[in-house]
Amino acid sequence: MATALELANRLRERFASLVSGPVEFRGELTLRVADAERMAEVCAFAKTELGFDYLVDITSVDNYGDDPRFTLIYHLYGYGHHCYARLKTDVSEEKGELPTVSGVWQTANWHEREIYDMMGLRFRGHPDLRRILMWEGYPHNPLRKDFPLSGKPTDVPELAFTQAAPLVGGPFVTVAGGKDTIEREPRGRLPENEPVETKGAPELRQVTEDRHDHSSGRGAVDQNQ
């Protein structure tokens, strides 16, 4: 029964210049893959040679203000040896795409569709890349840090509106990457007053108008539809 450290070291030896690590935190090992283009190759090796036959999850993180902007994290597990591994890779905003691993594990199909939907990263070679949680034709990528929690006005086909969620004082939001805990404390912030990010150039959120008329009382806005 191999331990997680042995498997991680074997992976690093095989791809010497490409993979760095493993870094250990709370008993978990993280390996960094320098080039996202060769991710499928590394994953195929991990599955066939090292026995990581179960892809647990693919996650994306938006490092707003850093370059490269996006980090992708793959969690692997093997039913034979019961060991976890984590692979990380970076994708810059200009490039915005990387090859798919759905040829290695079929479960990556839906995970990658979700990342495409939420973060806007494209996967080359994906059999069916379209939005999965938001509807077709939604123009934004909600999990990016510059997208406000209350949303931006868009069009839902046949329903004519989506509004930013209204609340006097806004929903409780934090400042992504604020310099200390006091700044990161979630509190009601009006979008036009608060900066999105304190590192780098702060930009104010766009003002979202509340077009909903509260005077109609009980009932629908579009009662004639």
Binding site: P142, L149, F172, V173, P186
Partner: peptide, 8 residues
């Protein structure tokens, strides 16, 4: 997930 980024 976006709500979680804004809550303790």
């Amino acid at each position: 997930e976006k709500i979680a980024e804004n809550m303790t």
